[in-house]
Write a protein that binds this DNA or RNA. Structure first.
Length: 197
DNA sequence: CATGGGATTGACT
DNA sequence: GTCAATCCCATGC
């Protein structure tokens, strides 16, 4: 699938497809192994409250990145989905580290490879993604997305409930590469989904 | 203007 | 298992 086609998917389909794509920023990067979908129609999504200064980015065109501060400490990286005017995004929750691993390990305090990008706050720290990139585009932006290598098999998906939220927690909108050692915790996978692609 | 609450992480009992 | 760090923002008075 091309980037253009990816960005035309509804947010849940986009979250599933993104597992296996690679993400890079300033030379660092890795393969996406875990995502979650958020949509304005459900209260766990920041866009549920409508357009505010905080959520404005979520209503931008698909392919814009939404970066916000969580718990006063961590930066969360999302890829905006759905047409302009619809608030939706895919949270990138974990990467299998690939590029500039040594630099990422220094940023993370020499963490193990498995734990280097195994969480949404960890991967933004490892890749050096700042809050100021909120609203930037993946098209020609400092953060870039790259499709899986054509012809190579893709890991089957496992599906679970989104974690760390109190509202709409029942939706099965968390996706990960089955068996990957690089996904975040907890790992209460509800079931195995169809293979990606 | 005061307040409460996080799409988390790491350290500690 | 528990809990603090730390700050922006949405909400309500």
């Amino acid at each position: 699938m091309t980037l253009e086609a990816l960005l035309h998917q509804p947010v849940v389909a986009m979250a599933r497809e993104l597992v296996g794509w690679s993400l890079r920023h300033a030379g660092c990067g890795g393969v996406i192994v875990e995502t979650e979908a958020y949509h304005e129609s459900e209260p766990a999504c920041h866009a549920f409250a409508g357009r505010t200064r905080r959520t404005e980015t979520l209503f931008c065109a698909p392919g814009v990145v939404y970066v916000y501060r969580s718990y006063g400490i961590h930066a969360m990286l999302n890829i905006v989905a759905e047409p302009s005017g619809v608030g939706a995004a895919v949270l990138i929750r974990a990467l299998a580290p690939l590029d500039e691993v040594d630099l990422m390990r220094r940023r993370r305090g020499l963490d193990t490879l498995e734990q280097l990008c195994s969480g949404p706050g960890k991967l933004t720290q490892a890749l050096g993604i700042p809050l100021t990139l909120d609203g930037a585009s993946l098209i020609g932006g400092p953060i870039t997305l790259h499709p899986p290598v054509a012809g190579e098999p893709r890991a089957p998906l496992v599906v679970g409930h989104r974690v760390g939220i109190t509202k709409a927690a029942e939706l099965p909108w968390r996706f990960a590469a089955e068996g990957s050692a690089f996904v975040s915790r907890p790992r209460p996978w509800a079931w195995t989904g169809a293979a990606v692609g």
